[in-house]
Simulated assay, not measured.
Amino acid sequence: MDWKTFQALLSGVNKYSTAFGRVWLSVVFVFRVMVYVVAAERVWGDEQKDFDCNTKQPGCANVCYDHFFPISHIRLWALQLIFVTCPSFMVVMHVAYRDDRERKYKAKHGNTTQLYQNTGKKHGGLWWTYLISLFVKTGIEVSFLYILHHIYDSFYLPRLVKCGVSPCPNLVDCYIGHPTEKKVFTYFMVGASGLCIVLNICEVIYLISKRVVRIARKARTHRRTPPLPLDVPLDVYKDHFDNADKIMSRRYLKDQPPSFKTATKSPPRISGLKMEDRFRASAPNLSIS
């Protein structure tokens, strides 16, 4: 398997990932691909050659090996890495589709117009594609962990297995090569897979919570400024916005701390015009008619 080509393909996914997605890619490359290529393949090597049984019956060792190892760990992990990283290419293909639409739109309407502000921004259909890819990756990880757990009995590798499958003449003892080393690598790869599942769940929560906050913020701003009907004349619109500015300025002045001028300003005197009017009304009219 050409892991360099595999790494080159996945490097394009890093541009459109969130912070959790970049950490997930780092875990996949460092703790899974690198460990797989550098150490795990050499540890397993030719497993069937190291599988010894205490009998010379022809075919007995082959049948017992196939019974206890229906699929090799190393090949199962290779399939897991391929299937887990395939959903990430959905995002790359969606961005490529957007780029193609943007190119055709500019060719038709001119370079000054644009269909998308940013083709790699996770809005609309790309957001759903990214979210679905996370669910698919998590499902694949869980499925492969279940398969490994079901086949190898809680990821455990014993030193000795007893086999009575035909054509073995009786119950035969078979010994697995490097059982402790294989057990350590198995637990390590299972732990790295579990870490990737946790990162995928955190990224799903992050994307959904960010979307909910954005929708709540838009609803709040829409509630603050109710729209006017379309049949209202323009001067009513002007008065509406002027009154809104006056209300906002009053609220601003009310929230401001009192200044020196407002604190030393004398209170307004009560007008005595009403009292004078009473005196004038009660006084006799001395004017000569």
Score class of each variant (00 low, 15 high):
Thr5His: 04
Gln7His: 09
Leu9Ser: 05
Val28Tyr: 12
Val33Met: 02
Tyr36Arg: 00
Tyr36Ile: 06
Val37Tyr: 02
Ala39Phe: 10
Asp50Trp: 01
Asn54Gly: 00
Pro58Asn: 03
Asn62Arg: 05
Asn62Phe: 05
Val63Arg: 07
Cys64Phe: 09
His67Met: 02
Ser72His: 07
Arg75Thr: 15
Leu76Glu: 04
Leu76Ser: 03
Thr85Asn: 12
His94Met: 14
His94Asn: 06
Arg98Ser: 03
Asp100Trp: 15
Asp100Ser: 08
Gln117Gly: 12
Gln117Met: 06
Thr129Glu: 00
Leu131Glu: 01
Ile132Trp: 08
Ser133Ile: 10
Leu134Trp: 06
Phe135Met: 06
Val142Trp: 13
Ser143Leu: 04
Ser143Ile: 01
Phe144Thr: 08
Leu145Glu: 04
Val161Ala: 03
Gly164Ser: 06
Gly164Arg: 10
Ser166Asp: 08
Ser166Trp: 02
Pro167Asp: 00
Asn170His: 15
Leu171Phe: 13
Val172His: 05
Val172Leu: 03
Tyr175Arg: 12
Ile176Ser: 08
Thr180Val: 08
Lys183Glu: 04
Phe188Arg: 05
Met189Arg: 05
Val190Phe: 05
Gly191Leu: 10
Gly194Val: 01
Leu195Thr: 05
Cys196Lys: 07
Asn200Thr: 01
Tyr206Arg: 01
Leu207Asn: 09
Ile208Asp: 07
Val213Trp: 10
Ile215Glu: 10
Ile215Phe: 06
Arg217Gln: 08
Ala219Pro: 00
Arg220Met: 02
Arg220Asn: 01
Thr225Lys: 07
Pro227Asp: 01
Pro229Glu: 06
Leu230Tyr: 14
Asp231Thr: 13
Pro233Cys: 00
Pro233Lys: 05
Asp235Leu: 06
Asp235Pro: 03
Val236Thr: 14
Lys238Pro: 04
His240Gln: 09
Ala244Arg: 07
Asp255Ser: 15
Asp255Met: 09
Asp255Tyr: 11
Phe260Cys: 09
Thr262Asn: 03
Thr264Cys: 08
Pro267Asn: 11
Pro268Lys: 15
Leu273Ile: 02
Lys274Ala: 15
Ser282Asn: 07
